[in-house]
Design a protein around this nucleic acid. Structure first.
Length: 255
DNA sequence: ATGGTAGACGATCTA
């Protein structure tokens, strides 16, 4: 069972790229972030034609998350419990093919110390509490998403340039580590040590051409999911295409 | 160069 997380930076602007990728790789589950449209504007039929059921939690212009699955998607939760009335659409959870999955779009935070930064840290606290509670179910649970945090300097091509900047500041990294310390595992780091792989390259300054990337898109696995983990990786290829998202799809496979 | 590029949306905001 292959599960993917991908920040697509607008589902409508990326529809051709995404549909091509789905038809080539046919993953079982795809956790999308930054769909950037209201539910009634989501290109439902085009995705269904690729062979997927869809659960969406969108809003106008910004954010927006979705779950695509070849299997039925049940027990869907829109919004991060218990703050499911948050006006920013950043979390969706459901159960598919016996696996609990979630797609999370953690706030970017703008700059360290800003109002948006404090909102980011608060969101991470809420995420921590929800993932702590859900761990008690003792299920295979995978939380894929754009965490907007590079866990360590190994996840950054240019750590000096990003030192204590947004995505790399110590408080953000501590918040992420607190979630991992609950008992969740960063799937990529089970199979890949050392520098990289990266998942995001800024559109600006030729970051892609210089491979000046960061690994901020993660798949966090409950112990029961790790028991079934077979492999993981990042598919860099879509980042090099015309009309690419600035993020690459990150995947793992379960036995 | 407090720059650079992309998307939504229709002037800026977000990333």
């Amino acid at each position: 069972m292959k599960i993917v997380t991908w920040n697509v930076n607008s589902i409508r602007a990326r529809l051709e790229n995404i549909a091509d990728w789905l038809r080539t790789h046919h993953p079982d589950v795809v956790l999308l972030q930054e769909t950037k449209c209201q539910n009634h504007d989501f290109p439902l039929e085009a995705i269904e034609d690729c062979g997927y059921n869809v659960a969406v939690h969108g809003q106008k212009s910004y954010n927006g998350v979705a779950i695509l699955s070849k299997y039925r998607i049940e027990d869907v939760i829109n919004g991060l419990p218990p703050f499911t009335d948050d006006d920013q659409a950043r979390y969706i959870e459901g159960v598919t093919n016996g696996v609990r999955v979630a797609s999370v779009y953690v706030p970017n935070g703008n700059t360290v110390g800003s109002e948006k930064y404090h909102y980011k840290l608060k969101f991470l606290d809420h995420l921590h509490d929800h993932l702590k509670a859900t761990l008690l179910y003792e299920e295979a649970f995978i939380i894929g998403g754009d965490y907007n945090i590079a866990p360590t300097d190994d996840d950054v091509n240019d750590p000096a340039g990003w030192h204590e900047k947004i995505l790399c500041s110590t408080p953000e990294r501590k918040s992420l580590r607190a979630i991992l310390n609950l008992g969740y595992s960063d799937a990529i780091r089970i199979h890949h040590q050392g520098k990289g792989p990266y998942t995001w390259w800024d559109y600006r300054s030729g970051s892609w051409q210089k491979d000046d990337g960061l690994r901020i898109d993660l798949l966090l696995l409950s112990p029961q999911a790790v028991d079934r983990l077979a492999g993981s990786g990042v598919d860099r290829d879509p980042r090099g295409l015309e009309k690419a998202s600035d993020h690459a799809p990150t995947w793992c496979t379960l036995l």
